[in-house]
């Protein structure tokens, strides 16, 4: 109990004091996870829409695989990426290991399945309705996909938020490929893990509260923006 009240105090102090080290960590967290979310959406939204609306060989298998990959443990993905990016690995020449780039890559790969699978479901539900109408208007398939993505934008925003939430909260992948290096690859979750292992529970908990607070602010601003887009 004392840890909790202490944690509130520490969190409050950290934010008020404007601790440089803390802000560095917050900004890196946001940079990595927002970039990963953006890239994952650019890839996952059209992919999910294509899975819902096109018919091709292997579609069923691809859908099952995508849905399964939603449950990929971050640490396993981190491990695979570590092996690929280490000097001995096939992509060692990229020199990405232990850089924010590697962390962005890891989180992007982690959430592409989430964005793709949820988008596929949403577009699929709407496609039942829209299909005949768009066919009747002779809308080309590619334009039909664009139309569906735009018309379901309110739901897809929630999909993006789900992807972002998964990215900003995961620790397993970024700690393996980023290495939690101070001033370079330390983000909120890896800092929390570190402080916990050092026994600094109040500080760890305080960082956790700050992380939730940031998520809260982002969700609140997205939700109020969503209120303004007409349905």
């Amino acid at each position: 109990m004392t840890d909790f009240s202490q944690a509130f105090g520490v969190a409050f102090q950290l934010l008020i004091r404007g601790d440089d080290a803390l802000y560095e960590i917050i900004f890196l967290s946001l940079r990595v996870s927002l970039t990963a979310t953006l890239i994952a959406c650019v890839i996952g939204l059209p992919l999910g829409a294509a899975l819902a609306t096109l018919s091709f060989r292997g579609k069923w298998l691809l859908t099952v695989v995508t849905n399964t990959l939603m449950g990929m443990p971050p640490v396993v993905l981190g491990l695979i990426l570590y092996m690929a990016l280490s000097n001995a690995g096939p992509f060692g020449w990229l020199q990405l290991l232990y850089t924010p780039g590697a962390m962005i890559l890891a989180q992007t790969l982690l959430i592409i399945p989430i964005v793709t699978a949820l988008t596929r479901q949403i577009i699929d539900d709407n496609w039942l309705d829209y299909r005949e109408q768009l066919h009747s208007l002779c809308v080309p398939r590619f334009a039909a996909i664009q139309t569906l993505l735009w018309d379901t934008r309110a739901s897809l925003l929630t999909v993006a938020m789900a992807g972002f939430a998964r990215a900003i909260s995961e620790v397993g992948a970024v700690i393996v490929v980023g290495g939690n290096i101070n001033h370079l690859t330390r983000v909120m979750t890896t800092a929390i893990a570190l402080e916990t292992s050092k026994g600094e529970l109040a500080l760890a908990l305080a960082l956790g509260m700050v992380l939730l607070l940031i998520s809260l602010m982002i969700n609140a601003s997205v939700l109020s923006a969503k209120g303004h887009t007409s349905r």
Partner: peptide, 19 residues
């Protein structure tokens, strides 16, 4: 396609775009 382009249909349950 050129034949279908000259036709329009209003369905029993019309589907309006969410716009």
């Amino acid at each position: 396609l050129s034949v279908r382009m000259q036709q329009s249909m209003v369905f029993q349950k019309p589907v309006l775009l969410r716009r």
